[in-house]
Nucleic acid binder design. Structure first.
Length: 539
RNA sequence: GCCGCGGUAGUAUAGCCCGGCCCAGUAUGCGGGCCUUUCGAGCCCGUGACCCGGGUUCAAAUCCCGGCCGCGGCACCA
């Protein structure tokens, strides 16, 4: 029934008749036996049996509304008060992705207009850029708001001239007034007075809290925070110097004012940001309306959480400060910062893939670690060399009639790259304790051995023998040139340490190498000295 | 409390705008098998979801109403 109408939408007006017809036919067919039904189908309607080709699944982002190729300008506007985390990477990657998709432009803008409560961190400007580069984000322009102050002053004057803003001298009282749907009496003063007062603000004739510039909105707007929202306020930069411009400015734009001005002046066409900005969008529209600017297209998506990771900037900072020595820094692999994920061994392509798959839905998304790990594993597997690492090592002595030699490929897909390992009678070898308890094992690439007390007794080299007996094929490390290795395994807020020995080949890899420790999991080499410290990425 | 936005398998997502090719697709996870000198990868098979209740309609995941739940906002933060 549905099928018929889908094929012939022109029949829709007759749907009622068709429904009746269809049910008659169905009941008729149902009287026949199943075999009979099949026979008729095969004989007379064989063409129905042919599978239609499966349509190929489209991957990637949905088209951007109101977007014209070559005309799209997006932006990523972080607050440089700390490094960015996976949640911040979402607008960054999405903005980058759409700019690329439409051959447009992407702008990076640091929003550092509050040296008091969101004091910028001097190093963060560069750290954020590093993270973005690592993520593969490409930007064509770079701006710092604290370096654009005269621009905000100029637009503010224009907005006052247009009668859209006023200087509020009522201080604390204004908050109550506005909550009640009323407002400070200075709102009704003439434009000339407002301009005068604004210059007095700039000339430091007022202190913090004594005067603010407010947008005129609807004093009875259902959302009290929208009512005459603050566009400019005074921050005492003698007490709270800004890390870039010091005490040069006294009057600072609020987020909503600076953003509206910049988005317009920089020609931003599409603003992609979290839904926590929905009300801000509403506020910013007042600026566009007053100035007669055309607003960009706003897209708000939900929050992004990474299961089992701490993302909050302030919480991470507190944890580090209150627990000296417990964390490795803002890039600790237990944190959801970009730097933390990088140190953990997550690839930037994996982050991008996950963020693209989550898309731009307004609903929240909780990414499960196993999902991120699966994507990362898929990318890592073909490029990570296999190295043998022995955890919980026990030391055994080889007993065999002669030396045994084996060749082990670094990667199963490229068997021509391999190292040679030689075990001779009397050699000491580390294997994992639980493997030693298996009785008979096959040392990967070497041969089959029987474990007898502290001895490893050679049986034979036959792989078929090992298969027939289902012997575990285990990793090992000859003690002679074994590398002492510690693997840090992040588990929630804990960082477990797994000690052991790796085979000599580990020496060939430097810091930042990504490897797979055979039967253990993927790791990233974090430091190399006499011994090696690796960080466990995932299985 | 007020304002706004959402609820599709364990997780994420497609479909919703324009109701019928959807007894709901895909990925991951989980279970089983094949392959394989790793408990990896790959390949097969299986598992599992439209928040609840009404309504409109021949037909509702899709439209309407109510409820429940979740999230965001309610700053002189961004």
């Amino acid at each position: 029934m549905g099928k018929v109408l889908a094929d012939r939408p022109d029949l829709k007006p007759k749907a009622r008749e068709i429904a009746k017809l269809a049910s008659e036919i169905v009941s008729e067919v149902n009287k026949l036996s199943l075999d009979e039904q099949r026979r008729i189908l095969e004989e007379e309607y064989a063409w129905l049996l042919q599978e239609k080709p499966k349509k190929e699944e489209k991957k990637g982002l949905p088209p951007l509304p109101n977007a014209r190729p070559g005309q799209v300008v997006t932006r990523f506007a972080p607050n440089p008060d700390f490094v960015i985390h996976l949640g911040n990477a979402r607008p960054a990657i999405l903005s980058d992705e759409y700019a690329k998709m439409y051959r447009g432009k992407m702008i990076l803008r640091f929003e550092d207009t509050d040296p008091r409560t969101k004091k910028p961190m001097k190093e963060a400007y560069d750290l954020i850029k590093e993270d973005l580069k690592w993520l593969g984000v490409v930007w064509h322009e770079e701006h710092i708001q604290s370096l654009r102050m005269p621009i905000y002053y100029d637009i503010a004057r224009e907005i006052i001239r247009r009668g859209c803003a006023y200087v509020d001298l009522c201080g604390e009282k204004s908050r109550e007034l506005l909550r009640a749907g009323k407002y400070c009496e200075t709102r009704d003063k003439p434009v000339e007075w407002q301009l005068e007062q604004f210059e007095k603000m700039i000339n430091r004739e007022y202190g913090e809290g004594e005067a603010v510039l407010r947008m005129k909105t609807d004093p009875r707007h259902p959302n009290p925070s929208v009512r005459d929202w603050v566009a400019m306020r005074i921050i005492d930069t003698e007490k709270h110097p800004h890390p870039i411009v010091g005490s040069k400015y006294w009057v600072w734009p609020t987020y909503n004012f600076a953003v509206s001005v910049d988005d317009h002046l920089m020609g931003v066409t599409h603003v992609l940001r979290g839904k926590e900005h929905q009300v801000n969008t509403e506020k910013q529209l007042y600026v566009y309306r007053c100035m007669g600017w055309e607003p960009p297209t706003f897209i708000h998506f939900g929050r992004l959480k990474l299961e089992g990771f701490i993302m909050s900037k302030s919480y991470i900072r507190r944890l580090i400060e209150e627990n000296p020595g417990r964390f490795l820094g803002y890039d600790d692999p237990r944190f959801g910062t970009i730097a933390g994920l990088r140190r953990r061994g997550i690839l930037p392509e994996a982050i991008r893939e996950v963020i693209i798959s989550v898309g731009i839905k307004p609903g929240d998304a909780k990414i499960s670690w196993s999902n991120l790990a699966a994507v990362n594993r898929k990318l890592l597997d073909p490029i990570a060399d296999r190295i043998m690492f022995v955890s919980e090592p026990v030391l055994l002595r080889v007993e065999s009639p002669s030396c045994i030699e084996g060749e082990i490929p670094y990667h199963p897909d490229r068997p021509e790259r391999k190292r040679r390992i030689r075990l001779c009678p009397g050699d000491k070898v580390y294997i994992t304790k639980s493997d030693a308890e298996r009785g008979e094992v096959r040392l990967m690439g070497m041969g089959n051995f029987r474990v007898e007390n502290d001895k490893l007794v050679f049986v034979n080299e036959s792989l078929e023998y090992a298969r027939a007996r289902k012997l575990p094929i285990i990793q090992f490390a000859p003690a002679r040139d074994a590398v002492r290795t510690e693997v840090l395994v992040p588990e929630g807020l804990e960082l477990k340490k797994v000690g052991g020995y790796a085979e000599a080949a580990l020496r060939e890899y430097g810091v930042d190498s990504r490897l797979q420790f055979v039967r253990f999991g993927f790791v990233r080499i974090d430091s190399v000295s006499d011994s090696v410290i690796a960080i466990f990425t995932h299985e």
